[in-house]
Amino acid sequence: MATLKELSAKKELFSGGHRLCAGCGIPPIVRLILRSAGSPVVATTATGCLEVGTSIFPYTAWRIPWIHSAFENAAATISGIESAYKAMKRRGNIPADKEIKFLAIGGDGGTYDIGFQALSGALERGHNFVYVCYDNGAYMNTGIQRSSATPFGSATTTSPAGEVRKGKKEWRKDLTKIVVAHNIPYAAQASPHNWRDLEKKGAKAFNCGGPAFLNIISPCPLGWYTKSEESITAAQLAVDTCYWPLYEVENGVLRVTYKPKEKRPIEEWLKIQGRFKHLFMPENKWLLEETQKRIDAEWQRLLEMDGKHVF
């Protein structure tokens, strides 16, 4: 495992000067992931904040080969790149000892929703690639519309907190669990505030020999209505309240990689975010209670599975 000093000495493959927002969770995630690969990486990105913010022609933030083709197909695109690598290596057009890693990145829109089928297909086919989902919990690039990753109760521009309906009424889709059901060698949840855990998971993902999936919570000051300087705190609170547990499933065995010494009440995470403001009105108290109950139950279930074979 790399120390912070070692990580900082590694070549920066994601240039500054990109147009992602101040306080956006994506750049630290991408920088850590690229540092964790250990070999040259070829990446593709689904349409979204990361793509738009890093590639406005004629500039690019990518110091690695990078392609964007569309919104819903990052996993299919990387399938093609990885297959080309295999075929060309077999034919001797690429030296046998030339190791290249393959990375697909999408937001929760491009991963949980519109890109879900392509992701499932690529995982099932067993391509050797890492898929990173930066989950900021809504379609932030197009102006904060709900996704299936949007938390229960959250206000978005397509699930506003109105007179009658109080934000998103559905619980979020547990995509990590669905990915685990594909029986891939490695899947994990991570957070940018815990760089050590994230880097370690990145390294495991790149070296597990098959498809790997990392679901990483990504604070979004614009859509969460948080202060830019509080992004990393917001990520930490998501983990310490157990809204976003850090765990991994390696060859079928689940391990919770971080257990908060003191589990914080969910209000602590919600109250710093403008998108949950309406939940703190007295008449909506039951929504908060509902949220806490569900998080407690899910955390409990996860702890019960800790150390066990889940497939």
Binding site: S69, N73, G80, E82, A84, Q117, A118
Partner: peptide, 15 residues
């Protein structure tokens, strides 16, 4: 959709 997406990825990879 994925067929053409994979073709695009592969062709961009020089195949």
């Amino acid at each position: 959709h994925s067929a053409m997406s994979a073709c695009i990825g592969a062709a961009a990879a020089g195949a």
